[in-house]
């Protein structure tokens, strides 16, 4: 008999991913407004934006192909799938075995691959520019990301994100140099992968600097809504990957079967949600400190930035093999 209880937790987690992601973005925007001395539009503005876009008609260029129309759905679906795999609430999700951390990185690569293709589909200079830059950034950020995660997975002897988090929670805490390198690299990469300052600016449409926005410039209506929403989920997921692989304490570790009993599980899941909110709140502040403290980089300084991240993560792995 298939137990339904784990799937209930899975469903709750996916719901949280869908709902918390815009909230997290709203929180970041609110903080940013406060830091810059502006009045914010409120915590719930991203919801309003998405709803507004869903109600609008779609304006499609004459020569848009099926690929252009298919991409938003695929991007959204793949991002949500990643959201079902990463241990956000509990370590024993039924979906956690579907893909390990390499596969999660590859899922984000699917998103990038198709967004870049969609950017080239219309045949405007902006789209091609965005795609070309995005693939350049991706081809440096993805290996750096893998290396940072690999360092953690070497320590925990597994590539499954849930088991990695499990190992970290249950092993006694040691300050490892390799982990420090990996964490630093991971922060740099997350900024690049989610299109934040200093690599890309999500709030601008300035042609000299925009990357992600250039690719999706031709989207409108529900297509844009899906892509925007997926983008918010991606930011949320990168944060939670960071949490799971570096600060997993607080995620529910109880095996999710009925034998444990509903109440204990419910408490641990609720505690997990509260921990999550606290961590996200703090990480949002950290992100905003970086964003307001730094200026957007020139596009050809970005390779140096990412090359630095790549070096750091490789150093992390090297120090594991040599020192530990």
């Amino acid at each position: 008999m298939i137990e339904l209880y784990p799937f209930l937790i899975e469903a709750i987690q996916i719901l949280i991913v869908l709902l918390f992601a815009p909230l997290f973005v709203g929180w970041i925007r609110m903080l940013k407004c406060w830091f810059q001395g502006r009045t914010s539009a409120g915590l719930f503005q991203p919801y309003r934006d998405i709803v507004k876009l869903f109600h609008k008609d779609v304006i499609l260029a004459e020569n848009a192909s099926w690929l252009f129309r298919f991409t938003p759905y695929l991007v959204f679906g793949v991002t949500v799938l990643a959201g079902g795999i990463i241990p956000i609430l509990s370590l024993s999700l039924p979906f956690a075995t579907v893909a390990d951390v390499i596969a999660i990185v590859a899922l984000f690569a699917i998103v990038r691959f198709f967004t870049a293709l969609a950017g080239m589909d219309i045949g405007t200079a902006f789209g091609g520019m965005g795609s070309s830059r995005e693939m350049m950034i991706g081809s440096l950020a993805e290996p750096a990301m893998l290396m940072a995660i690999f360092t953690v997975s070497l320590i925990s002897q597994t590539t499954s994100l849930s088991n990695m988090a499990d190992m970290l929670i249950h092993k006694e805490f040691i300050l490892r140099p390799s982990m420090a390198f990996a964490l630093l690299a991971f922060v740099l990469i997350s900024l690049a992968e989610t299109g934040r300052i200093p690599v890309d600016n999500p709030a601008t449409h300035l042609e000299l600097t925009m990357i992600h926005e250039a690719m999706i410039l031709e989207y409108s209506g529900r297509h844009l809504a899906l892509i925007e929403w997926a983008g918010m989920i991606k930011l949320f997921l990168f944060t939670t990957i960071g949490i799971a692989s570096f600060f997993p304490w607080g995620i529910s570790t109880l095996p999710s079967n009925a034998a444990i009993g509903g109440l204990g599980n419910l408490i641990s899941i609720s505690a997990g949600i509260i921990f999550l909110i606290l961590k996200l709140g703090f990480l949002g502040i950290g992100l905003i400190l970086i964003e307001t403290g730094l200026a957007k980089m020139r596009i050809f300084r970005v390779p140096e930035f990412l090359g630095g991240a790549f070096l750091l993560s490789t150093l992390g792995m090297l120090s594991y093999f040599i020192l530990e």
Binding site: S139, L140, P143, M147, F150, T314, M317
Partner: peptide
């Protein structure tokens, strides 16, 4: 480790 790094770079 260097090999893993270069393979990851290649794949991307």
């Amino acid at each position: 480790p260097m090999g893993a790094a270069l393979l990851a770079l290649t794949a991307a």
